[in-house]
Design a protein around this nucleic acid. Sequence first.
DNA 1: CCAAAAGTAAACAGATCTGTTTACTCGTCG
DNA 2: CGACGAGTAAACAGATCTGTTTACTTTTGG
Lengths: 198, 198
Amino acid sequence: MDKAERSEGKRLEIVKRAFDQFYDGGFHATGVDTILAETGISKRTLYKYFPSKDDLIEAVLDYYGAWIVGELFDPVASLSATPREQILAFFDVRRARMQKVPNRGCLGIKASQEFVGKHAGIMAHGKQVTLRVESVFVELCERAGFTRPAELGKQLNLLFQGAMLLSLVYGDSSPFGSAKDAVVALLDAQRDGASLEA
Amino acid sequence: MDKAERSEGKRLEIVKRAFDQFYDGGFHATGVDTILAETGISKRTLYKYFPSKDDLIEAVLDYYGAWIVGELFDPVASLSATPREQILAFFDVRRARMQKVPNRGCLGIKASQEFVGKHAGIMAHGKQVTLRVESVFVELCERAGFTRPAELGKQLNLLFQGAMLLSLVYGDSSPFGSAKDAVVALLDAQRDGASLEA
DNA sequence: CCAAAAGTAAACAGATCTGTTTACTCGTCG
DNA sequence: CGACGAGTAAACAGATCTGTTTACTTTTGG
């Protein structure tokens, strides 16, 4: 392990731990002392890699954005089913997951909610997280051969993010059921459009 | 104005001001000093009516929940159009509104995001806000005579809340356009169901 | 083996937060 | 008039927050 790797290892360790704490506790409510507690990492090291807590938050959002795409879509990508079945399976998998581990929503949206009108940099990084996820929905719709994949992908993202939030608010996974029913109707509507054009 | 009225007037004044500040700045990021600044209200009075900041937050959520229903649905209820047109107009009105004033999302969802896993009382009040809005969507679908109004109403709420959040994240009203397109498809699908039953 | 780099631990500064207390003002009602 | 209820203003207590500094330890490369 050379120097650069070691340093980056420490930096990554901080980001991962900060992610856990921010995700569970929120950004404003989680202090840097809480992040470092029981880790053996000193505050000085944190402020060496990140000039301020806001910089750390932006790094955590970048880390989360890169991680969440695989976390969301790998389980259905390896499903070897038709694209339509993969999209429907996506909502089932999400629903099942949130019944096992408590749902805290999307960290990008959480950040945007907490910093809207107050910190443009963090807003930009939060936006990137959501755009990444949206773009994968659109790609999935393209590969599935739907007419107007950009619009359909955005609508799937809308239903997914809405279901995430409402299931958090309700403390119950049923919004994913409503979302899936809506997705079925939307996919059927697009298929009708395709057959009309064919 | 008798004694009780005057007191309740003061209480309401605090709640209204707190709503403005919380809505714009978030719950954790807004201190009670900020709420009282430039109002001439003293901290002692605030803590007379509300034993703690958390109690104030719950009162603000109740106030918001009662207010937001009219704010959202009165503009379309007075439209004297078919229920289908009213539902579509709802999304147009919301889009137009957020182009005028900066969108901060739903306060109930904001509260749930900030206090999930940490304060059950606030979570319950936040949930009530969202349930109120959802129930009006369902009522609207019932009056419109759709088959399965409960499911459709929940889906409309899902699309609305998703569009609110994403338009906040993106800083742009286009998610309301995607949501409206999805709503058109969903309403058409339900109408097909209705005509099949007729 | 030794010097530089990297890290821990802990005190510290200064700001800010919730909530309490003290002292004063003012309008109302008997 | 006089007492009381409601309110303002401001100091205060104690906790917590971000960020800095000082002193010491560990690791690593030549």
